[in-house]
């Protein structure tokens, strides 16, 4: 009986997925902390009509650091070409929270860092594990998202950003 229930559930989820024409489109009114301890609502993330990347990461997550390092190396070019910015939202808890600021500064990352230490935003955006990257268009709508990172995958992200800017 239990196995039947599981199968039923999975089938229902798949159907629900299939039915779901409209995905999560805008950022919710959920608070995160800036690196200087100020509360900011994700709803107010803003890049003046240009695309925005939101990348969920943690100091203990190796692929996350590889991804942010890789984007960091190309960031100047990306910004110049498309005006995109990246907001790096750390899901670190107290164990490693202190090193969020030091690790990101020590690696010289040019991104704005936010702290989601109670993981409210992670849950609201249905992030299961990190790295998880969202791309938002100039209207602040989520147009693309990706879970996990392999070297070189940042090119795929960049192509998605170019699609947004070239369509204009």
């Amino acid at each position: 009986m239990k196995k039947v229930r599981i199968i039923l559930l999975v089938v229902s989820v798949l159907i629900a997925l299939g039915n779901q024409s409209e995905a999560q489109t805008v950022l919710p009114n959920v608070m995160v902390e800036s690196i200087t301890g100020q509360e900011v609502s994700a709803m107010n993330f803003f890049n003046d009509g240009k695309p925005m990347i939101i990348s969920f990461w943690a100091t203990w997550c190796k692929p996350c650091i590889l991804e942010l390092d890789a984007i960091s190396d190309e960031y100047d070019e990306w910004r110049e070409e498309t005006g995109v910015i990246l907001l790096a939202v750390s899901i670190d808890d107290e164990r490693s929270l202190a090193s969020v600021k030091t690790l990101s500064a020590g690696r010289d990352w040019p991104f704005t860092i936010y702290l989601d230490k109670n993981q409210d935003l992670k849950r609201a955006l249905n992030v299961v594990n990190v790295p998880h990257t969202f791309l938002l268009n100039g209207k602040g709508e989520i147009v693309w998202q990706h879970n996990s990172y392999v070297p070189g995958a940042e090119q795929e992200l960049y192509e998605e950003i170019l699609k947004l800017t070239e369509n204009k």
């Binding site: 202190a98 090193s99 600021k101 030091t102 690790l103 990101s104 500064a105 020590g106 010289d108």
Partner: peptide
């Protein structure tokens, strides 16, 4: 008790 210093390219913390 936590203390951290962070500048571009150099950062340290003591906890």
């Amino acid at each position: 008790l936590n203390a951290a210093y962070a500048s571009n390219g150099l950062a340290m913390n003591l906890s």
